[in-house]
Write a protein that binds this DNA or RNA. Structure first.
Lengths: 187, 187
DNA sequence: TTGATATTAGTACCAAGTGCTAATACTAAT
DNA sequence: ATTAGTATTAGCACTTGGTACTAATATCAA
């Protein structure tokens, strides 16, 4: 009936990955084997029981919630010299690209650049007033985008700071932009 | 020791909301009451048992995963005329604003505008090449941002389309931008 | 002191398992 | 065909974190 243990086990792995909410009993019925066989399979494949799987999913969700406030900055800042320059990296994942063509959605690159421009200012209130950006080259999932922000000039009377941002992947320019930032204190 | 049932129950509601992974036993120990009391409290408050709570969290996460591909477009498109114009709305939530000052992070407005510029093109492949944007007025949590994209011109030789985007809250301009888009087919 | 409300205790039962032992079934090689 | 080895099935005791229900106390207020 079923094409061997191997096949069943690989199907099983898939099934569970696809829907972690399925019980051994349901799986047994689906594969026309006993519940015990399913249990043995899970053991061999080191797949935890239903409750553990569900807990894992829930726990992951919880981690996410906790790490979300960190999206105040998109990308990880690895170097910063306030009011001068800053560098951040951002790893592009599957969730950042268009399904159709695998190219990163522009707003993620913009978000990284904009976040960095805000961060480099370090004022109680730093807001983007204007920006001028160019998406030079497509970025894809798996790429590591390195973004540098450089403070170029100021207009203290108007509380403005100008920041230039360039992003590259493997030392190739993929994005550049100029940001005009507003700050509360003219410094 | 404990200030009445009422107080305990409100603390309990909080505790569980804060950490759905806690068992009745742990709660009983924490409140210095018996496990049964905790159970009675949960019944009165209609709080489901641990496993159900965890399942709920996990299920929510699963729904999210399924609805995530919808973030191909930021904001909800309410009207669209391909290669001509489009309108989307985006409700700003607490998660979109800076904690410090309650003002929406620029990239969300940009994301809405950029998404709409992509959507109005409707080509297999529409990419942002350049954009020039201005954040005219701060946007806050609770604001409903209405964004309009208008196709302004084309350069068929270069496969370019120019889109103008303006966003407003309560008919007041909050954002404007020009987007230069690349498309595969020059149409 | 009487009632009402709150709390605790105890029992039977459930789902979805784990862990273990033991009996079959199937398959392949000698 | 017999034997070995893997695969499958069955059955039982036990575990968690409960539900459902009954019954005994405690606490407090009129």
């Amino acid at each position: 009936m079923k094409r061997s243990k191997k096949e069943r086990q690989s199907l099983l792995t898939e099934k569970i990955a696809d829907n972690p909410f399925v019980t051994d009993e349901q799986l047994a019925a689906e594969f026309n084997v006993s519940v015990q066989t399913i249990r043995l399979d899970r053991m061999e494949l080191a797949i935890p029981e239903l409750r553990e799987r569900i807990k894992d999913v829930a726990a992951k969700k919880y981690d996410e919630v906790k790490s979300l406030p960190l999206d105040e900055v998109i990308g990880e800042i690895i170097d910063i010299e306030l009011d001068n320059r800053a560098i951040s990296i951002f790893d592009v994942g599957e969730e950042h690209v268009f399904q159709r063509n695998g190219i990163a959605r522009g707003h993620h690159l913009f978000a990284q650049a904009n976040s960095l421009a805000v961060a480099v200012i370090d004022d109680e209130l730093a807001l983007t007033v204007k920006s001028n950006v160019a998406f030079v080259k497509p970025v894809r999932a798996g790429d590591r985008v390195v973004t540098k922000a450089i403070v170029k000039g100021k207009n203290p009377e108007k509380n403005r700071t100008f920041v230039e941002v360039i992003s590259s992947v493997d030392n190739e320019l993929v994005f550049k932009g100029e940001f005009e930032m507003y700050r509360t204190k003219g410094e």
